[in-house]
Nucleic acid binder design. Structure first.
Length: 639
DNA sequence: CTAGGGTTAG
């Protein structure tokens, strides 16, 4: 009689069947080797289930634990199959207590079927730490962070002890929760169970604190780590970059060099990405060159990061060369370049590159379309934008179906070009629930076109979805201020104060001789401060004679006109530009990075300065570049 | 038997 092992093996190779029979007994090692070489397919599974039906000429034989394990490993694509195996497990008399359940549970979590996974888990009698870990890991990997944290709590309540495998996932999940107190509690647990010096646990704790902006704590954990390997350095650098602390990341990178640790490709990727954020192309390029000389691998990810850096520093020409010379290009490469054109105001080139991408048969994804749509948005190409959006909606490809971000792009496109009604109807017709980002795009448009009624309605929607978002509140307050409704401005400000929402401080930075010079509004802390203000005064005088009128509409209402002008004068980008005029070699453009959007007045100011001084000024604000040359801006005043 | 780091967008 054939047993189940033999049938499966036979399916693998007819010859093997004979060999198998000659050997008499199933040698687990032997057929493990055969089976793992195979790609188990649904048909294999069918064969397997055939063994357990009456049409089968083979007598059903209880499968061994090994057989189940192999079958389970092969059925990762389909919950239905797993469910059948689960059923078989229950009927074959194999106990649910063994490692098969772990395997089944792992597979379910990989498929993302967490509700089933949880049910299976609940069937277990007194699950041990290992199984708890598997469940927590599943929730974390499927981004159901709150469940991951509460499963940990449950685990503690029933008295199961966590181990060093439990915490990496619990901590990772907690870092995604909006509550730092939960995180502190978990940190306390880590200490309580004596696991604070386990490298991976500590690394995760560190990342968690970076996420909450507690850099000192992260630094402490890192500094007092017992075994600090390359991965922990990389982890910290990467998370600093991802959470907007690029200059800290760069400092850490230097520290790493001094500690004599050799970076690898992953380090370089994060560092280049950080340089892009800061807008320091020269520093980034130097780091890249050095890494090449030191023989650090340069793969497509490094190339992409470098391309992105170039684009984010506003050097499109250089980026284009880099793009053409890349040995390999993937979707990310193309998307980066398309978006690069878009944010630098070269919409036609962005769209041209997109059609070239299609000609070269590279499949675009949803990010690619964000670039395409924002290219349309920055140039006011309403019809084109609509056409691309329709194309996406008609596409059968799941990767290209419009998402919330695309709707936000379209709303921005309609709204910015003055079609507020259409933007509103567009939101109302969305098949998915609009989020704060979608409404926010419309609020921005309302602010530009001074449509207060609609703005208020939109703000109501936003504040239900994101009550404490500082940028929308500021937008609202500016909108009221521009129309002189100071009572409403006060209300918004009061609301912000009550809920503890802080306005993000605006700052601008300039890279000069390998160093950053950061300016806040009205900042007099810079060593050249008095020189800068002197020069600024002089510039303003000349500009006024050319017809410049300061636009004070968005400044606080409770100050006199003169004071308003003074506040405006000291805007961070004006200080940064003036610093650039005083220091940067006249042959080069002055590059300024701003963390928020440039204000109307500073935009006008920059145009005048470029004309007056015949200098090229490049400002990168939160969402795009402005290239000022000879009194004109590349955005054509459409932003 | 499980585990930490890298590129576009947000």
């Amino acid at each position: 009689m054939l047993n189940a092992h033999a049938v499966i093996t036979n399916y693998v190779s007819p010859n093997f069947h004979q060999k198998f029979q000659r050997r008499g007994n199933a040698n687990a090692m032997l057929w493990r080797r055969r089976l793992t070489k195979l790609n188990f397919t649904p048909s294999t599974f069918k064969l397997f289930s055939l063994l357990h039906t009456q049409d089968c000429s083979f007598r059903p034989v209880p499968l061994t634990k090994e057989a189940f394990t192999y079958i389970l490993q092969s059925c990762r694509s389909n919950t239905n199959q797993l469910q059948q195996i689960h059923g078989l497990l229950l009927t074959t008399g194999l106990s649910l207590k063994n490692s098969l359940v772990t395997c089944l549970l792992t597979n379910l979590t990989l498929l993302g079927n967490m509700s089933y996974a949880r049910k299976l888990f609940d069937e277990m009698h007194k699950p041990r730490t290992f199984l708890w870990n598997t469940l927590i890991k599943g929730y974390t990997k499927n981004h159901i962070f709150i469940e991951a944290a509460s499963v940990y709590r449950e685990m503690r309540l029933v008295g199961v002890l966590p181990d060093s495998f439990t915490f990496p996932f619990v901590v990772k999940a907690c870092a995604e929760l909006p509550d730092i107190w939960v995180c502190s509690a978990v940190h306390a647990h880590v200490v309580k169970f004596g696991l604070e010096f386990v490298a991976m646990v500590r690394t995760e704790l560190m990342l968690m604190y970076v996420r909450f902006g507690e850099l000192d704590l992260a630094d402490f954990l890192f500094g007092s780590m017992v075994e600090r390997d390359l991965v922990s350095w990389n982890a910290l650098i990467a998370s600093l970059v991802q959470n907007g602390h690029a200059s800290k990341a760069l400092a850490l990178f230097r520290q790493m060099g001094m500690a004599g640790i050799k970076p690898d490709a992953a380090t370089i990727v994060s560092v280049l990405s950080g340089c892009g954020q800061l807008g320091c192309l020269e520093i980034g390029e130097e780091i890249y060159e050095v890494s090449r000389k030191e023989g650090i691998e340069c793969n497509i990810i490094v190339d992409n990061a470098r391309l992105d850096m170039c684009v984010k520093c506003g050097n499109v020409a250089k980026a284009k060369n880099m793009f053409e010379e890349m040995p390999k290009r993937n979707v990310i490469t193309w998307s980066t370049m398309i978006l690069g054109y878009a944010i630098n105001g070269e919409s036609e080139k962005a769209l041209g590159l997109f059609s070239r991408m299609q000609k070269e048969d590279v499949e675009p994804n949803y990010v690619t379309f964000l670039g395409v749509l924002s290219a349309c948005s920055h140039a006011g190409l309403v019809n084109e934008g609509r056409a691309y959006f329709d194309y996406m909606a008609r596409s059968n490809d799941k990767n290209v179906q419009p998402r919330k971000e695309h709707y936000a792009c379209m709303v921005d496109l309609f709204g910015r070009s003055g079609h507020l009604g259409e933007a509103y109807r567009f939101i109302k017709s969305m098949p998915i629930e609009p989020d704060a980002g979608v409404w926010g795009a419309l609020l921005g448009a309302c602010a530009i076109h001074q449509n207060i009624e609609l703005g208020e309605h939109v703000a109501d929607q936003i504040f239900q979805l994101a009550p404490d978002s500082s940028s929308y509140l500021v937008l609202m307050s500016n909108m009221y201020a521009a129309s002189g409704r100071w009572d409403c401005v006060d209300k918004v400000r009061l609301r912000m104060r009550k809920r503890g929402v802080k306005k993000i401080a605006a700052y601008s930075s300039v890279e000069f001789e390998g160093e950053f010079h950061i300016f806040y509004g009205g900042d007099r802390s810079h060593p050249q401060s008095s020189l800068i203000f002197e020069k600024l005064d002089e510039l303003l005088k000349e500009m006024r004679s050319m017809g410049y009128i300061p636009n004070t509409s968005s400044v606080f209402h409770d100050v006199e006109t003169e004071e308003k002008e003074a506040t405006l004068t000291a805007h961070s980008e004006k200080l940064a530009i003036t610093f650039g005029l005083l220091n940067v070699n006249p042959e080069f453009p002055i590059r300024v990075m701003k963390n928020l959007r440039i204000c109307d007045d500073c935009h006008t100011f920059s145009k005048y300065v470029s004309k007056l001084t015949s200098r090229e000024i490049i400002i990168r604000d939160k969402i795009r570049f402005h290239h000022f040359k000879n009194g004109l801006c590349s955005c054509k005043d459409f932003w």
